[in-house]
């Protein structure tokens, strides 16, 4: 088999130009191969990433991995099974994001933690929390805002612990022992979820509901 070359393309910043336009120009200049895309500050849902991948396919390239400043983009890409990497300036990205979406509310305080939470550990955050790693059985993660787990959630998660009913819990694999949103408590589902499907839990009519993840919802 022919060894394919690995190339990386960086999309423009959101304020500078439209990514589709720039991507087409950049792709024309490239030979077919494996491509790493740096999405910078673009927030993509699964559909956007699917579109991105098919644009690459049209010009004979294959999407290998996604890099981004925005955690939601990373979650979408990981849900579709691509390799992902959160850019180094993720804190800036998150800060901007929160500023835009939650005007006047506790902004810029997403706690970022890398590593697996093992039994007995408890990760607490005032605002949102993003965990890169698993939450093992017996461990707990809680946040005043949203709980986002880029990994397997098998312990206990509490979102909106100060009473925020709109908080959500999102994980690449949602298999918790127990979920709590605001002051509502639910036992985790008995059956195993489909692999590769990111899911989120939200509060609806006083009950906790689990559905396929849509990172866009986190903006509301």
């Amino acid at each position: 088999m022919k060894h394919l070359e690995r190339k990386s393309i960086a999309l423009p910043l959101k304020k500078d130009d439209d990514w589709r336009k720039v991507l087409k120009i950049k792709l024309n200049a490239l030979k077919p191969g494996l491509i790493e895309i740096d999405c910078r500050d673009w927030q993509f849902n699964c559909r956007d990433i699917y579109k991105l991948a098919s644009l690459l396919n049209e010009s004979g390239c294959k999407l290998l991995s996604i890099q981004s400043d925005i955690p939601e983009t990373i979650v979408s890409a990981a849900a579709l099974g691509y390799q992902t990497q959160l850019a180094k300036n993720y804190n800036e990205g998150i800060a901007q994001q929160v500023d835009r979406n939650l005007p006047g509310k506790s902004s810029a305080n997403t706690l970022f933690h890398k590593g697996t939470l093992r039994s007995g550990d408890h990760l607490k955050a005032e605002g949102d929390v993003l965990l890169l790693g698993d939450v093992n059985p017996g461990a707990k993660i809680s946040a005043g805002g949203n709980v986002m787990v880029w990994g397997r959630l098998r312990g206990v998660a509490h979102a909106g612990k100060e009473g925020n009913n709109n908080a959500r819990i999102i994980a690449l694999q949602l298999r918790p022992l127990q979920l709590r949103i605001a002051d509502v408590i639910a036992r985790g589902p008995e059956e195993k979820p489909e692999p590769g499907l990111a899911e989120e839990a939200k509060l609806q009519e006083g009950r906790i509901l689990i559905e396929p993840a849509n990172p866009q919802n986190l903006q509301k």
Binding site: G115, L117, R118, S119, G120, D121, N136, P137, G138
Partner: peptide
């Protein structure tokens, strides 16, 4: 056994 695995997990966290 789940109990032994749970305790081992805790110990690994502390060792880390």
């Amino acid at each position: 056994e789940v109990s032994a695995v749970r305790d081992a997990d805790r110990v690994i966290g502390l060792l880390n």
